[in-house]
Design a protein around this nucleic acid. Structure first.
Length: 482
RNA sequence: GGCGAAGUGGCCGAGUGGUUAGGCAGAGGUCUGCAAAACCUUCUACAGCGGUUCGAGUCCGCUCUUCGCCUCCA
């Protein structure tokens, strides 16, 4: 069975073949770095991480580009707003570059903890201003864009196919519903900005032929995608909320310049909801990953996300995540047993599970089914290990290889062979506190019973590993010695 | 208003015509010094109303409800 991918452009599953045999070019909309990453980011980047992993596993060389949007976006009205990064920098009393650098590092830190592979190229929008300006120039030269008072707009009239991705093709009807923009300098209300002239207070601005200003918010993806992946790319991924207008605008400006299809497969992942409502920073209901990771293993979050399909909404709740944590632990336990078992004589067949897993992944990356296969596999492994004759070494190795391939290499949920992933420093700290409480209670009980050999043993052995116990009037306390 | 998605058992969540999804939770059992883990058995479904069909969560129509986009947003 070959790989089928749901293409948003056409809304059907299509057989996937890259444009150039053996090589897949893939671009995924990256984060706007003005705040910490939240669960919504996790869903998107975990989903596309698995896409990349599966394509690579299938033998393709994947060139994966994911941008960093550090130019910021407008906060209010499209024409009158304030740059998000500038706004945040004002709040934090620093400059925009520090803000974007800080949150970029934070973003990668969170992504790393969920075992998301870094993209091959992570271009920053601010580092590609010349490329964006060049694109605008080409659009003006070819009559697709026009300049007004130092700003440049894309003319929708020049691109009749506009809206083919989102299905919003009737611009007349769209405009009739839009409130009248009395002061707009655009020729048509739906025209979108390619370059905006900056006012005095604007902090992030660059020299361009038309004005000192900044690029429009759809431009960077087109410019950087074309620069690093070519004029036609195989896969462009992003969140559903970006279908319109962002992706439709990308198509318009890119195809106007090249005359070629911009993207062959559009992939859109669905939202994380909380109590049924979309999670979003601007909605003030987002749950930051670095908060979640204080109590939840990042790999549990990854697993939780992959238990639903990337095109489905995923509703966040503590109970749902706890359920995932328990379930994942079950897989770890099974893998542990498998590794530690003594060779027996029984035969255990892994091939059918492997096939089911492959079929699931090839069907538009159906990770929920792939995971269900892992659970079925886990149950069969446990049952086989429970049998008196056990399983043979050859069977064991094959079974372990399947866990390794499916669980670690492809889904990225079973790292370190079933040992804990990055449980987070804070969580580990809490655990150590708990462990020490238990030990100190035992030691106190021993001293009460005048079992000093035991109490001293606890104290001395802890000291050997760098934990010193101090007995005070209030009871025992402990410190970690450096 | 326009474009789009969806309503599955206590919870999460798969499934585009006929066979057990899976996980968590619950019940009973095996095992066990006790527990845990594991395994076995088991209870709660397909929003409603019509229609197509030998047969429908699965296709069609209508109704109700929810969500996303139409402003930055994974």
């Amino acid at each position: 069975m070959s790989l089928f991918i749901y293409n948003s452009l056409g809304r059907t599953k299509e057989k996937f073949e890259p444009l150039h045999p053996g090589i897949v070019t893939m671009y995924v909309c990256g984060p706007t770095v003005y705040g910490h990453a939240h669960l919504g980011h996790a869903k998107s980047y975990v989903s596309f991480d698995v896409v990349v992993r599966w394509l690579r596993h299938s033998g393709y060389r994947v060139k994966y580009v994911q941008n960093i949007t550090d130019v910021g976006h407008l906060t209010d009205d499209a024409d009158e707003g304030e740059d998000k990064i500038i706004k945040q920098s004002r709040l934090e009393q620093t400059d925009p570059m520090e803000i974007s650098q800080f949150y970029t590092r934070s973003f990668y830190h969170d992504m790393d903890r969920m075992a998301i592979l870094r993209p091959n190229i992570a271009p920053a929008a601010t580092a590609h201003i010349p490329e964006q300006i060049a694109l605008v120039e080409k659009l003006i030269q070819s009559g697709h864009a026009y300049e007004v008072n130092g700003s440049v707009y894309f003319s929708l009239e020049s691109f009749p196919a506009y809206g083919k991705l989102s299905g919003r093709t009737d611009q007349e009807a769209l405009q009739s519903g839009i409130r009248v923009e009395t002061r707009s300098e655009k020729r048509h209300p739906s025209d979108f900005a390619l370059w905006k002239k900056a006012d005095e207070q604007h902090l992030m601005k660059w020299n361009a032929p038309w004005s000192i200003g900044y690029p429009g918010w759809h431009l960077e993806c087109s410019a950087m995608s074309m620069k690093y992946l070519g004029e036609t790319i195989d896969i462009h991924g992003g969140g559903m909320e970006n279908k319109f207008p962002h992706h439709d605008c990308e198509i318009a400006q890119s195809e106007s310049v090249t005359g070629k299809p911009y993207v062959r497969f559009w992939m859109h992942n669905n939202m994380v909801t909380i109590n049924g409502i979309k999670m979003g920073k601007s909605l003030k209901n987002s749950v930051n990953l670095n908060e979640i990771f204080k109590n939840i293993d990042p790999l549990v979050i990854r697993f939780f996300i992959l238990q639903s399909h990337y095109r489905s909404q995923l509703d966040y709740s503590e109970t749902a995540i706890k359920a995932s944590a328990t379930g994942l632990e079950k897989l770890y336990e099974s893998q542990r047993r498998l590794r530690e078992q003594n060779p027996g004589s029984g035969v255990f067949e892994s091939a059918s599970f492997q096939q089911r897993f492959t079929d699931a992944m090839n069907d538009d990356f159906n990770t929920p089914i792939a995971i269900a296969v892992l659970f079925d596999f886990s149950k069969s492994v446990n049952t086989a290990l429970d049998r008196i004759e056990g399983i043979s070494e050859a069977s064991r190795q094959k079974a372990e290889a399947f866990f390794d391939q499916a669980g670690r290499e492809i889904l990225g949920i079973m790292l370190d062979g079933g040992q804990a992933g990055d449980r987070g420093e804070e969580l580990n700290g809490k655990r150590l506190d708990g462990v020490m409480d238990v030990l100190l209670d035992l030691r106190a009980a021993a001293r009460k019973n005048k079992d000093f050999s035991l109490s001293d043993k606890i104290r001395d052995q802890l000291l050997e590993i760098g934990i010193e116990i101090k007995d005070t009037k209030e009871g025992a306390s402990w410190i970690v010695k450096s």
